Computed example of a mutant assay.
Amino acid sequence: MRAILFFLILVLCIACNSKQDTAITAGTYTSVNKENLEYYLYRPKNLKEKKPGLLLFLHGGGEAGAQLKHLKLGGPPKLMEEAYPFPFLVLAPQHPYADKWWNTQAVYNLLQDVVAKNNVDTNRIYLTGLSRGGYAAWELAINHKETFAAMAVVSAMAPVPYAHWLNHEMPIWLFHGAQDSIMPASEADNMVAKLKELKFNVRYTKYPKTGHNAWDKAYTTDSLYIWMAQQKRN
């Protein structure tokens, strides 16, 4: 019943919000290891909490090394532009290098800075990433395992040994296209099998006729954000 009520509120907020209602802040952060990260921070107008939750989103290789505005072409940043009523703040950093992995320590430093300055509820920090950003999400989840209340990974490499190092209390949702020729669906298949074997709370959405771009479908799934908002770190 609570999930149905939350969904109805979400739909009503989508209907009543307009593009002029967006509250997107662009910023630049320099981490202690001298990594410069530009980022967007989004505070939905429907969000009235004094101590809100926060979703950290890591984009894929297509936007790496590009301009910050290119983040708005897809995923949660695109929804920011459309004034989507996320039930939490959304933090979307820009990966500055086209041909390198994410510097996850710099991302974590940025996250800590944003959390402190925006009075974020540290028991409601969520993590998601697509493709290259999805791999970075796995890395963040194992290196800072007491930070995240839930995570969602889309179209990404999923090293099965990582399953042993994750916080067992953290719910996980994977999305992947069955016809992905860049990052085979077997990555997600094998990780999900291992997570289930280890008794994790795991969900898996596999799109049968979708290639590498499973994120357009995944990030426009309202139930993803409803599910996240229901999770809270013990």
Rank of each mutant, 00 (worst) to 15 (best):
F148R: 12
A3I: 13
L224N: 10
P171W: 01
P76I: 07
R2L: 08
N118E: 06
L89I: 15
P161Q: 02
E197H: 02
K50C: 09
K50A: 04
A214C: 05
E81L: 12
K217P: 04
L41H: 03
Y42I: 15
V32T: 15
V192N: 02
A66C: 09
Y225E: 05
I226W: 00
M170R: 05
N103Y: 01
H70D: 13
P44E: 06
L8I: 08
E82I: 14
F88G: 06
A26C: 11
F86K: 12
Y42M: 09
L110H: 09
S181W: 15
Y39L: 05
A66W: 08
N143I: 11
D216E: 14
V202P: 01
T128R: 07
Y204W: 06
K78H: 11
K199Q: 09
N201E: 14
G60Q: 11
K78C: 06
L68R: 11
F7E: 12
K217A: 13
E197C: 00
E146Q: 10
L73N: 13
A116G: 09
E82N: 15
G75L: 03
Y29V: 05
L79C: 08
Y108P: 12
N234Q: 13
K199D: 11
A116F: 15
N119H: 08
A163Y: 03
Q112G: 03
N190C: 04
N201S: 12
L55H: 13
A92W: 11
K194Q: 06
A214E: 00
T28N: 08
W101R: 08
P161K: 07
A214R: 08
R203E: 08
K232N: 15
P76R: 02
S18T: 15
Y225D: 12
K72C: 13
A15M: 15
G62Y: 14
E197P: 00
E187S: 03
T221E: 12
S18Q: 15
P77Y: 13
I24Q: 02
V90W: 09
A163H: 00
V192Q: 06
G129S: 09
D216C: 14
F7M: 13
L111Y: 01
N118D: 06
F175V: 03
A26R: 14
L55K: 11
Y97T: 02
Y207W: 07
K69W: 09
V114R: 06
N119I: 10
A141I: 01
T205S: 03
T104C: 01
G61C: 14
L55M: 14
T28Y: 13
L166F: 06
K206N: 10
W173A: 00
L140H: 00
Y126A: 08
F175S: 01
H59A: 07
F175E: 01
Q230K: 09
F86Y: 11
F148N: 07
V115G: 08
L166Q: 02
D113A: 11
L54V: 09
L89V: 11
H59K: 10
F200G: 00
A137E: 11
L71Q: 13
L127M: 14
A137P: 12
M183R: 05
N109W: 01
A185K: 05
Y42A: 05
A64Y: 08
L71D: 10
Y29K: 10
Y162H: 10
E169R: 12
A156R: 02
Y42F: 10
L111M: 04
K196Q: 11
H95A: 06
L56R: 07
P52C: 03
P184D: 02
K34P: 05
H176C: 01
K100I: 03
Q67F: 10
F175K: 04
Y29R: 13
E187K: 06
G62S: 06
